[in-house]
Design a protein around this nucleic acid. Structure first.
Lengths: 220, 220
DNA sequence: ATTATTTTTTAGTATAACCTAAATTTCTAT
DNA sequence: ATAGAAATTTAGGTTATACTAAAAAATAAT
C-alpha cells in the first residue's frame, strides 16, 4: 500500500499512544480528543486506516492497531524522539520547547537521514523526557519504572522519565530542580494528601504534591 | 494574510528562481516545467498567490514577484540552504544527496529552530554548492563570480559555486576532483570546442568540456 | 424492557492541490 | 492583416482532510 500521509501518520501515532497499556479498543471520541478534530472526521480517517490495514476497525466498537500499524507508528515515534534529542543536545532547546517542532520534523521521509542522525547523536536510547527511542526495527528497550508517588518512605531511586510532558509541567520541574537522571530519596510523606518530600542528589530538598509525583517516573 | 502552504511556498520559490537575472515576467509554462505540474494547475496557483499579494499576476502575461513575495521566498531558500549545510557538515551527506531532504526540511515552520541551527552551524554564508545563504531579513551577500568557460588561458581563480547542482553533475565533479574552494588555473584551451584543461591546487590536472566548465562558477 | 443519553457514523459541504478537456487569448509567420 | 500555432485560462472532476447536521447504533437509567 502507499505510504501514509502526514495526517494518517499523526492519527496512527495517536492511536498507538492511546492503545498503550490496555488492550481494549480505542474509541473514536478518545482519538477525536487527542487529535483535536471532530468525531466525524475521525470516522472518516478510521475507514482509510482500516483500508490500509494499519488498524482493525469494527464500526461502533473502536479500533485496534495491527502489527503493521505498530511498526509504522514506532517509526514515527523513533523519528520524533531522535529529533527531540537533536534539538535539546545540539541546538540547546529546553525540554519543554521541543514538542511542536519535533511533531513537524517526525514526518520527514528520508530513511538515511534518520540513520545518520541516530549515528550523529551517538545512538541515544532515550529522549529528553526519558521515553525510550525505538530502534530501526521498532524494538523498544524500555526500563522498568514506576510513578514516584508509589515509592515507600525512605526509598531511593533515579528519575528516568516524565508521564506528563507538557511545557507547563516541564518548566515546573526545571524550576524546582528535578531532572531526568537525578538520584532521589523519599524523605517525608504526608498521609493526608499523599504529598511527599524528596532529596535530590543528596543535596536539594523538594516538596511536591501527589499529582506531581504521579507524573514523575523512577527506576529503583 | 495566512501563512503560505507547502505548495504555495514551493511555487513561490520556483518563481523566485525563475525571476533571477531577467526582470521579465515568469511564464506559466516555465513554472509548470519547474514544478512538474500542468499549466492549468499553475494558473490555479497563480490566482491564489496573487490573492496573497506575493506575486503580481496579470493574466496571460506571466508574473512578477512582489517585495513581500521575495522576502518569503528568501526565507525558504535560507532554510533550505542552512539544512543543506547541516546535512553535509554534520550528518556527512555528500553534496549530491542533500536536495530532496532539504526540500522537505525547508518547510519546517519554527523561527527559533532556524536561528539556533544557524548559530549551531557557525552562521555559514554559503551552502555546499556555493550558493549564498540569505540572512534573517532576506539580505543576500553574493560573491562576484563567473562561469569557468569565460576565463582566459592561464587565468587563475577559485571555484566558488556550481550552476547545475544535479546529483549527476556533482558526482562527476567529485570523481574528477573538483570542489568548492579549489584554486584553479587554466592550463590549456581547445579553440575548436571550447573544452579546457585546468590545474587544481597546483597538483591535479583536469580536462573538461565547455559544457562542464560553464556550470562551474569561479571567483578571480 | 423500554426510554433516554451518549457515541458513532453517514450525508452533505468546503478548501487545497492536482488533473483533463475545452475555450480563449496571445504570438508568429506569411 | 490574418490564419494557424502556442500559451494560457476556464470549466469541471478527483482525492485528502476537515467541518456541521442528521441519522443510527450502543449504552445507561429507570
Amino acid at each position: 500500500m502507499n505510504p501514509l500521509t502526514y495526517a494518517e501518520e499523526n492519527y496512527l501515532k495517536a492511536i498507538y499512544h492511546l492503545s498503550e497499556g490496555g488492550k481494549k479498543g480505542v474509541s473514536t471520541n478518545d482519538i477525536s480528543g487527542e487529535m483535536k478534530t471532530k468525531p466525524a472526521s475521525v470516522s472518516d480517517m478510521l475507514r482509510k486506516l482500516g483500508d490500509k490495514a494499519v488498524i482493525e476497525y469494527r464500526k461502533y466498537y473502536g479500533v485496534h492497531i495491527t502489527e503493521a500499524g505498530k511498526k509504522l507508528a514506532l517509526q514515527t515515534i523513533r523519528k520524533h524522539r531522535l529529533w527531540e534529542v537533536f534539538l535539546v543536545e545540539k541546538l540547546k532547546f529546553s525540554w519543554d520547547e521541543v514538542h511542536e517542532v519535533a511533531d513537524e520534523l517526525e514526518h520527514i521521509k528520508s530513511r538515511i537521514l534518520i540513520q545518520r542522525l541516530d549515528e550523529y547523536l551517538g545512538f541515544p536510547k532515550f529522549d529528553p523526557h526519558g521515553d525510550p527511542i525505538p530502534d530501526e526495527y521498532g524494538d523498544v528497550r524500555s526500563r522498568p519504572r514506576l510513578p514516584l508517588n508509589e515509592l515507600d518512605l525512605h526509598a531511593t531511586g533515579q528519575i528516568v522519565a516524565v508521564k506528563d510532558s507538557s511545557a507547563a509541567f516541564l518548566r515546573y520541574l526545571d524550576k524546582v530542580g528535578a531532572y531526568i537522571g537525578a538520584r532521589i530519596k523519599i524523605t517525608d510523606m504526608v498521609e493526608f494528601d499523599g504529598s511527599i518530600e524528596i532529596l535530590v542528589d543528596n543535596k536539594k530538598s523538594i516538596f511536591m504534591s501527589k499529582d506531581v509525583a504521579g507524573n514523575i517516573l523512577v527506576m529503583q
